[in-house]
Design a protein around this nucleic acid. Structure first.
Length: 932
DNA sequence: ACGCTCACG
DNA sequence: GACGTACGTGAGCGTA
């Protein structure tokens, strides 16, 4: 062949079997809708291949590629050692039929698909690597299997497909303690429980590496085993020499595995659109089919029936056609649309504005849609491109006046018989509220997706459109650019803006039609109707109210902090013996650990030293001064940059107040999140930090009132896990942590050692988070075994908690989701993973119903609050997860506390009758520090 | 853009 | 038998 494999070529070898198992464990057990064929692993496999194929690699792109599979479980290694891989469990029932399908998938992607009877994939990969390397080419093995690491080096590298991280000689050395050419020796000694490679009993990787390093290689070691000093180790090696040699043959990969094809035949070919799409649609992978079709510029074949959860069959809709949208520039056109909306009884609406801060942005236009494909754009604020000499831009001619448009739409927008459909309607609600329009009733596609899909994916419109409509929206960047040259939406020419804007309304309407029927099917209608939608106007009003800030106080604090930091910096440089960037963990780590030789481990990921407060506190406790000063500096620096410096920049010049924005669908559990600025993490735990709250002040003649739920998550735990001891303690109003300590350690509550109570408190919190002995030991700085003892005692004393945890995990596994008391669903797609990720998914699943129920309760309180306090000169300003902050005229403080407390304490009812009381603590003052 | 660190519940 | 671990967030900084 003229262009045969050789120098300059790059061969990619994909470990297909590993892909399959990873896909199987990462995904819920999907089945093909039409016949129930299990296809979850195939789906994951295809997604991974597609991601691999579309990955941009530039000059590193492969010229040749193959996916290699294990042919069967019996290989030549079983002739060497018949127990080889004997304790491997059989593959799960529903995975087996998927093996041949993954081969079909590989061929459909037009990638060479290789397997050989009697050999493992690893052997074929080894043979191909050797052959390609000898021909002068480069090889990348896409796998993280440690058994393949012996092949690394000399033009052969590995690539971890999950982390996307190359594995080179250094990584291999880190793992095995020897270079790749001696890896088999170490493996032969250490053995492998998973593959049932015996090795030498009692010798692990560490010892093996040490021995090999000392003696050079395995044969030398075995020959000179008699010289080993440690008697036990010496005897082991002598007694098991044969077993070790067999082990080596088991782990050693053979470059001479027969291959019945040439390297040239592995040349990379573009996928054949028809073949690939045919396969994907036959598997009924709707989303992927659409995505692939789009990328290949082909028409997606119809997918007859779609996978269940992800994408139910979409009714026949006209395709999205941006040319079909109208631009409304005259009164007659507007009237016609108003009539259409009245006839339809619903409208999708989206406002286009000059910025993202809805407190300050101006309206550029409004888009409406009444049916899929029927959408319009009403420009009202577009201006000519460039600014004139005075920084003013001239309005573009031919637009309807803003006031006229709003006057015409107001009756519709406030008509209780017309449903307003939007994506993130809080934004549009606030824009319109500034013009005196109070939209109702509302339907929000973002919140529908949140009710259905929390935990599965995010809920931005572009993502939803791609996922559920198979449509890629115009990116806003294409219109307004990005970075320094970014313009605002009003400066976009109307003919460019209209298709983008109208498309948003069209897409929103289509998403609404997609989601609306799913809410009852998935039993999330109640959550959506009672805790998602009604919170929109409540939050909008809170955000518009804002909170008053004393910027002068903050500025003074900044000045004081700056002085303190300067002094600390001098001290730090002196202690370190040099100047450096204190804020750089990298430089700090080098100084502490390399230069000054303090002891502290590296972290896994980047290999950098950890300099977190945890580590520095330990060092400080050992008597080092530098880490202690660094901790001081960090604390001040944080307070200054994040709070005292930043907060004044958020003061709105028109209102003189700070207006945060709450994201309703941001957190997976139902909690809100606060941004721009985040007012949910204002310091409180240290005295110095707490003083920042003094700058949050009430308006003239007013007070701030803070009401917060006491121990709400533990109370919920007591209720849902049905723990009699805990419930009774809450009913009797006794100190819950002291009670726990008393039960665990058998000491009386009276006169308890605070240390013991602290431990019980840590365990109580640990339970909510899905406790582990490791976490508890770190938190309490006690040995792991001791932490484990505490946990054992705790579970013994409160067995209901263990039962609750097991139940929750089982639910998550069988349903793919967990629910709160109020029916909120949080999906748990990672729960069936294996490996380290599984632990995290399990803890998240345990925590979600508890944190989520607390979030539901305070949401319910917030929704009822405006009506409950309407008769009082008071308004709700902030929410901090279990706390509500109000601004009240000073003569109405007591009334407000009485009313608001009642609303909060009864918020679970009537939906849920809790078996423990909810208790709300109140505080009041001129500022937030006093009130909290 | 990403990781580290740290503020909150 | 090892893995890496408390749950949920957002912001500022340094580094790439």
């Amino acid at each position: 062949m003229s262009d045969g494999f050789g120098k300059g070529c790059h061969l990619h070898l994909i470990d297909g079997s590993a892909f399959i198992f990873r896909a199987y464990h990462a995904l819920p057990p999907l089945t093909r809708k039409s016949d129930g064929l299990p296809v979850g692993a195939v789906a994951g496999f295809c997604n991974m291949l597609w991601k691999y194929v579309t990955d941009e690699r530039g000059s590193d792109a492969p010229t040749h590629a193959a996916v290699i599979f294990d042919h069967s479980s019996k290989t030549f290694r079983n002739d060497i050692y018949n127990a080889y891989k004997a304790n491997r469990p059989e593959p799960p029932e529903d995975l087996r039929p998927q093996f041949p399908l993954t081969r079909d998938a590989t061929r459909a992607f037009n990638i060479a698909c290789i397997e050989t009877q009697g050999y493992e994939a690893d052997d074929i990969i080894a043979a191909l690597s050797c052959k390609a390397r000898d021909a002068g080419g480069a090889v990348t093995i896409i796998s993280s299997d440690k058994d393949l690491m012996q092949l690394v080096g000399d033009g052969v590298q590995m690539l971890d497909p999950i982390k996307g991280k190359p594995i080179d000689r250094d990584e291999v050395f880190e793992k095995f303690g020897v270079w790749p050419d001696r890896v088999v020796d170490v493996q032969a000694l250490a053995g492998d429980a998973v593959d049932n490679v015996p090795g030498a009993p009692g010798i692990g990787i560490k010892t093996a590496a040490q021995l090999i390093t000392e003696y050079g290689d395995l044969e030398t070691l075995l020959a000179r085993a008699g010289e080993i000093k440690q008697p036990k180790r010496r005897q082991t090696l002598i007694d098991h020499a044969e077993q070790i040699r067999i082990s080596k043959r088991l782990v050693e990969l053979d470059c001479n595995t027969p291959l019945d094809f040439t390297l040239d035949s592995l040349e990379v070919k573009a996928p054949d659109a028809a073949q690939l799409l045919g396969f994907l649609s036959e598997m009924e992978f709707r989303t992927l089919t659409v995505r692939v079709a789009e990328k290949l510029g082909a028409k997606a074949p119809p997918v007859v029936s779609a996978p269940v959860r992800d994408a139910p069959a979409v009714p026949d809709l006209p395709p999205i056609d941006r040319a079909a949208y109208e631009t409304i520039t005259d009164g007659a056109g507007l009237d016609r649309w108003i009539q259409m909306i009245r006839d339809a009884g619903q409208m999708a609406i989206d406002t286009e504005t000059t910025g993202l801060d809805e407190m300050q942005a101006d309206l550029a236009g409004i888009c409406l849609a009444v049916a899929p494909g029927r959408a319009c754009y009403i420009p009202v604020g577009h201006v000519a491109g460039g600014d004139d000499l005075f920084g003013q831009s001239a309005p573009v001619a031919g637009q309807l006046p803003l006031a006229d448009v709003l006057a015409a739409l107001k009756p519709l927008l406030e008509d209780p018989a017309i449903l307003k459909i939007g994506q993130n309607l809080k934004y549009d609600w606030k824009m319109l509220a500034r013009h005196g329009i109070h939209m109702a009733p509302l339907a929000d596609t973002m919140l529908m997706s949140y009710a259905l899909n929390a935990g599965t994916h995010n809920h931005g419109m572009d993502e939803l459109a791609e996922r559920y409509l198979g449509h890629k929206c115009i990116a806003i960047k294409e219109l307004i650019g990005s970075g320094k040259s970014q313009i605002n939406f009003a400066q976009v020419p109307i003919d460019k803006a209209a298709p983008y804007a109208a498309e948003d309304a069209d897409v929103t309407l289509r998403l609404f039609q997609h989601f609306a029927p799913l809410l009852p099917v998935e039993r999330v209608t109640t959550v959506y109707e009672t805790t998602e939608c009604p919170i929109v106007p409540v939050l909008a009003e809170m955000e518009m109210a804002g909170i008053r800030i004393d910027a002068e106080v903050l500025r003074r604090m900044s000045g004081a902090f700056a002085q303190k930091m300067a002094a600390l910096e001098d001290e730090i440089y002196a202690l370190a013996g040099q100047k450096f960037t204190i804020g750089s963990p990298k430089q700090l780590g080098e100084i502490l650990f390399d230069k000054m030789g303090m002891t502290g481990g590296k972290t896994g990921k980047t290999g950098a030293f950890s300099t977190s407060a945890d580590v520095l506190e330990d060092l400080a406790a050992e008597g080092h001064d530098l880490p202690a000063r660094i901790l001081d500096w960090r604390q001040i620096s944080k307070l200054k940059s994040t709070y005292t410096d930043a907060l004044p920049t958020f003061v709105n010049p028109d209102t003189g107040r700070v207006h945060t924005s709450y994201s309703i669908a941001g957190a997976q559990t139902g909690r809100l999140a606060s941004t721009d600025p985040n007012l949910q993490n204002i310091p409180v735990r240290t005295e110095e930090g707490r003083r920042i709250r003094e700058a949050f002040i009430a308006a003239e003649g007013h007070r701030l009132v803070s009401l917060d739920y006491s121990q709400i998550e533990l109370r919920i735990l007591a209720h849902v896990a049905d723990i009699p001891a805990l419930k009774q303690a809450f009913r009797e109003g006794i100190d819950i942590h002291a009670m726990t300590a008393s039960q665990m350690f058998g000491v009386p509550v009276e006169g308890m050692d605070p240390m013991i109570r602290r431990r019980a408190k840590a365990i109580n919190f640990g339970v909510i988070y899905g406790i582990s002995s490791f976490g508890l030991s770190r938190n309490l700085r006690i040995p792991r075994a001791e932490a484990q003892d505490f946990i054992d005692t705790y579970f013994q004393r409160f067995p209901e908690i263990r039962a609750y945890m097991d139940r929750t995990i089982a639910d998550a596994k069988s349903d793919g989701s967990v629910r709160t008391l109020f029916g909120r669903r949080i999906n748990t797609p990672g729960i069936n993973q294996s490996g380290p990720a599984a632990g995290g998914a399990r803890r998240a699943a345990i925590n979600a119903p508890i944190q989520g129920a607390a979030a539901d309760i305070i949401r319910r309180a917030m929704i009822r609050m405006p009506a409950a306090i309407a008769h009082l000169p008071a308004r709700m300003l902030l929410q901090v997860h279990d706390e509500l902050v109000f601004e009240v005229r000073e003569d109405a403080v007591d009334d407000l506390i009485t009313v608001a407390r009642a609303v909060m304490e009864n918020a679970a009812e009537p939906a849920v009758k809790l078996s423990v009381p909810l208790v709300v603590d109140a505080g009041t003052g001129m500022n937030w520090a006093e009130a909290h």
